[in-house]
Computed example of a mutant assay.
Amino acid sequence: MLDGLTLATGVAALLLAAWCGWAAHRDQPTKDWHFIGMAVVSVLALVQLVVGVVQLARGEEPQQGTTIFVAYLLGAFACIPAAGFMSLAERTRWGSVTVAAGGVVLAVLEVRLYDIWRG
């Protein structure tokens, strides 16, 4: 899989986590510009999902198994949108904490995706 895309998605997820963590520290809920940041990270995860599926369709195999790789790809794609929807339900600082946690989880998923692909 593309190492640069995995790195970019992980770094963007950590930047989103820091940004929303700062908002939570200032006792603010998620705002419109946080949702724009979530959209950017989600698009990166979508591109990664498409690239991963295309590579699988071309016959390339992840070192640790296709099933677990696809499961992690789908989880990475769903991570930030799920946190965003949960932050809409909680319009306090805890909504920002939820998105910050989702960003950290996505960054960890990116490391794991790299490990699964490379072995």
Rank of each mutant, 00 (worst) to 15 (best):
L2G: 02
D3A: 10
L7N: 15
V11M: 07
V11L: 14
A12G: 10
L15E: 13
A17R: 04
A18F: 04
A18R: 13
W19H: 09
C20P: 05
W22M: 14
A23Y: 06
R26L: 11
R26E: 09
P29L: 01
P29E: 00
T30D: 09
K31H: 14
W33H: 14
W33I: 14
I36N: 04
I36M: 09
V40P: 04
Q48R: 11
Q48C: 09
Q48T: 05
V53S: 02
V54Y: 12
Q55Y: 15
R58W: 15
G59A: 06
G59Y: 13
E60S: 12
E60P: 06
E60V: 06
E60D: 12
E60K: 14
E61C: 04
P62R: 01
Q63G: 11
Q64F: 04
Q64T: 04
G65V: 09
T66P: 03
F69V: 11
V70P: 02
V70C: 08
Y72I: 10
Y72G: 00
L73E: 00
G75N: 12
G75R: 12
F77Q: 13
A78F: 13
P81M: 02
M86C: 13
S87A: 15
S87M: 03
L88F: 15
L88R: 15
L88C: 11
E90M: 07
E90F: 03
R91L: 14
R93M: 06
R93A: 10
W94T: 06
W94F: 13
G95Q: 00
S96Q: 03
V97H: 00
V99T: 04
A100R: 01
A100W: 02
G102E: 01
G103V: 00
L106W: 03
A107Q: 00
A107L: 07
V108H: 00
L109Q: 10
L109M: 10
R112C: 06
R112A: 12
Y114N: 03
Y114D: 07
Y114C: 04
D115W: 11
I116Y: 06
G119E: 01
